[in-house]
Write a protein that binds this DNA or RNA. Structure first.
Lengths: 352, 352
DNA sequence: CTGTTAGCGCCTTCAA
DNA sequence: TTGAAGGCGCTAACAG
C-alpha cells in the first residue's frame, strides 16, 4: 500500500477523510476472483447451487467480495430487475401523534425483515400533493405503496395507483378491491361493552365521542359493536355524548352534560384522549372513577397509563397494523383482502 | 386507438384494470416528437436555453411528453448521475411519541420542497441494525443521511458515514465535525427561569428531572441555563428533584418529595410529561397551580394544552428541527456547523 | 460449470 | 441546433 499525498493544498472535501477510492463494482470482484461477472453475480445472489457453481469458485468470489468490501449498486440492479426492494408509504398525517409513529415502527421493522426499505410521504390531506408523491415514488420504482390515514376513513384510492401493488392502512375503499388492514372496531366495541357488563353494570352506559367526519368509520363500528353486545343481554345503550376525539372537546362536552344533571354509571370513550377529558370533568363534578363511574376506552396509548387511575383500554397496535400492511404488500395480496386486527384489553383500574 | 382483448381468459393481474402499457421512455417521447433522445433529454431537464434549442422543437417535445404521460425512470438516471434525489433518515426510535413523528413531518416537507423523498430506518438503538440500515441506504445511493436520536445525545457517528454527506439531528458528535441541528437548550433554560422571575419568584425554584443517561445533553444544558439566569439576579436554584422524563416517575418522585414536607414555589419541569406527573402530585397534596406553585416546562406538546391549567411551556419544534436538518443536508453544509433552534414560550396559565 | 453478449433508460461528450 | 455513440453497474439469455 502506497501512501499518496495530495500536492495541491485542499484536496479534501467535506468530512474528507479519504480521497474517495472509487466504489467497488461487481466486475472488480469478478476480476479479483478471476471469474466472469456473470459467475460472480450468480454467487453473490445466492444462486450458486441452482447454477451448480464449483465450491472453490464460490469461495474465491466470496472472499474477493469481502476483501474489497463489495456492495451492489442497487440503482443499476433496479434498472435491470425493475425492482428496488423499497416500499412507499403515503399518509395524510404522519405526525398523528401516538398513532402514526408507531405505525412507521412496525412498517420499518417488517420491511427490514424482508430486506426492504421504506420511503415516506405526507400529503397533509392535499390530493395534489398525494398525486405528486405517488408519481415521485413510482418514478423511483417502489415495489408497492401503502396508503395510510390517521383516522380510519372510507376513501377512494388515487387513480394513478391503478395497476400498482397497493395496500390500504387504516382506511378502506369499498368500491375497489384494494387490500386493506384495519383494527377490528366492531368486535372492539363489543368487547368494551362486555367489560362494563362483566363489572355488573346494566344501565347508565354511555358512549362518549362520535365520528368527526362523514367518511370516518371507526366510531360507528365501535358503536355498533357496543349495541350488539348490550342487545345480547337484552340491555340498551343509555345514549351517546357526542364530541370530537380530543381532550378539550371531550372535557367541554362532558362538563356541560354533567352540569345538566347527568349521572352515568359507565363510560365507553372512543379513545384515550376523550377519556382524559372525561376524567377531568368527572373529577370536577366530584365523581370518582371507578367508584361512581366505570370508564373504558380505546387505543391503550401511553396516555391511558398516565391517567390516575389508569384507564382500562382496548389496545390498538399501530405497529402491528404497519407491519401487517407491509407483509401484505410484499406477498402480492389477493384482491379484496381485508385484515381486521383484534384489539386486546389492556386493563387499568377504571372499571369497578 | 385499437381496443385489444386478451384471448386467454385471465389476463388481468392484481387490481388488473389495464393490460399494462409498457412504460413510456425518453426515446418514445423523442420519436413521437421526431427528435433525438439527446434533444428530448436537454429539453425535459430544463437545459433548452443553455443548449439554444429551437422553441418549436421544445414545444413539440413537451407536448409529446405530456401526451404520452412521460415520467423519467429515476433508477436509470441515478445510474448515470449517481444521485437519487432521496435522503436517508435513520433514527434510534422513530416512535418517540410526540417527538419523532413531527420531525418526520418537517423533514418530508423540506425534502419535497427540494424535490426529494425521504427513506427512513429505525435502529431501536441497535448498532448492528444501524450498520445494516446505513449500508442499505448507501447501496440505494441516497444523496445524504440524517442521523437522529429521540433524546438529545452525545454520540459517535457511525464510521461508515465517513465521506458521506451527513447531518446530525437532535444529537451531536464532539470529536467529528459533522454538522448538527439541535434545540437551544441553554437559552431555553435561561428563558424558563426568567418566566418565573418575571412572576416575582425569588426563591423556592426547583428543577424537576435530570438527564437519564450519561451521554444525554439536553437536561444539563437547560439546568446550566437556569443557573445562569438566576445568577444574573443574584439568586440561586433551590435544588433539583431528580427523576426520569416520564409521567409516572415524575409523579412518584414529586409525591415522595412533597410528602417529606417540601413546599416549592416554582417548578421548572424538563418536559411536559414531567409536568403532568408533577401536577398530579401537587393536586394530591392540595397545592394549587399557579396559586401555590408556578410551573414551567419544556416541549409545548399537546399534553401541555391538555393539562388544567394549561402549562406554560417552551416550544420545541421538532418539525422545524427536521426541516432544518434536511435543508442543511441539501446545501452541502460547512464542516462543524451547529444550528441551535430557539425555543419560544407558549404561554399557559400555570405561572402566577 | 462458466464466459460472452446484450441490453435496462438515461445522460453526455463529441461531431456534424 | 441537433444527432450518434458510449457507458453507468448489473442481470439474464444463450452458448460452449
Amino acid at each position: 500500500v502506497v501512501l499518496t499525498v495530495a500536492a495541491t493544498g485542499s484536496g479534501l472535501g467535506k468530512g474528507g477523510q479519504v480521497p474517495k477510492p472509487r466504489k467497488v463494482t461487481l466486475t472488480d470482484v469478478a476480476q479479483h476472483a478471476r471469474v466472469s461477472a456473470t459467475t460472480a453475480s450468480y454467487i453473490l445472489n445466492g444462486r450458486s447451487v441452482e447454477m451448480r457453481i464449483a465450491s472453490d469458485t464460490e469461495a474465491r468470489v466470496r472472499i474477493a467480495a469481502a476483501e474489497l468490501g463489495y456492495r451492489p449498486n442497487r440503482a443499476a440492479r433496479s434498472l435491470r430487475t425493475k425492482r428496488t426492494a423499497t416500499v412507499g408509504l403515503i399518509s395524510d398525517f404522519i405526525a398523528g401523534g401516538h398513532f402514526s409513529s408507531q405505525l412507521l415502527t412496525g412498517a420499518c421493522a417488517a420491511a427490514r425483515a424482508s430486506d426492504h426499505l421504506v420511503v415516506i410521504g405526507e400529503t397533509g390531506g392535499d390530493l395534489d400533493v398525494e398525486d405528486l408523491l405517488i408519481d415521485e415514488m413510482l418514478d423511483r420504482q417502489v415495489d408497492g405503496v401503502i396508503v395510510a390515514t390517521r383516522t380510519a376513513l372510507r376513501i377512494t384510492v388515487n387513480p394513478r395507483l391503478a395497476g400498482v401493488n397497493t395496500v390500504l392502512l387504516n382506511c378502506i375503499d369499498l368500491t375497489s378491491q384494494v387490500p386493506a388492514v384495519l383494527p377490528d372496531d366492531l368486535t372492539g366495541g363489543s368487547t368494551a361493552a362486555g367489560l362494563l357488563l362483566d363489572a355488573g353494570l346494566e344501565d347508565g352506559i354511555w358512549v362518549v365521542g362520535e365520528d368527526p367526519v362523514p367518511n370516518a368509520v371507526a366510531g360507528s363500528l365501535r358503536l355498533a359493536g357496543v349495541h350488539a353486545r348490550l342487545a345480547e343481554d337484552d340491555l340498551t345503550l343509555a345514549g351517546v355524548v357526542p364530541c370530537d376525539w380530543e381532550v378539550v372537546p371531550a372535557y367541554d362536552a362532558m362538563s356541560a352534560w354533567l352540569a345538566s344533571g347527568a349521572r352515568p354509571r359507565g363510560l365507553i370513550c372512543l379513545n384515550d384522549r376523550i377519556a382524559m377529558g372525561a376524567y377531568q370533568a368527572l373529577a370536577e363534578h366530584g365523581l370518582d372513577v371507578p367508584g361512581d363511574v366505570s370508564v373504558v376506552s380505546f387505543d391503550a396509548s401511553d396516555l391511558a397509563t398516565w391517567l390516575r387511575p389508569r384507564v382500562t383500554s382496548l389496545e390498538l397496535s399501530f405497529a402491528e397494523l404497519g407491519a401487517r400492511a407491509v407483509d401484505l404488500l410484499l406477498t402480492d395480496p389477493v384482491v379484496g383482502t381485508v385484515v381486521r386486527l383484534p384489539m386486546p384489553v389492556r386493563p387499568g383500574e377504571s372499571v369497578r
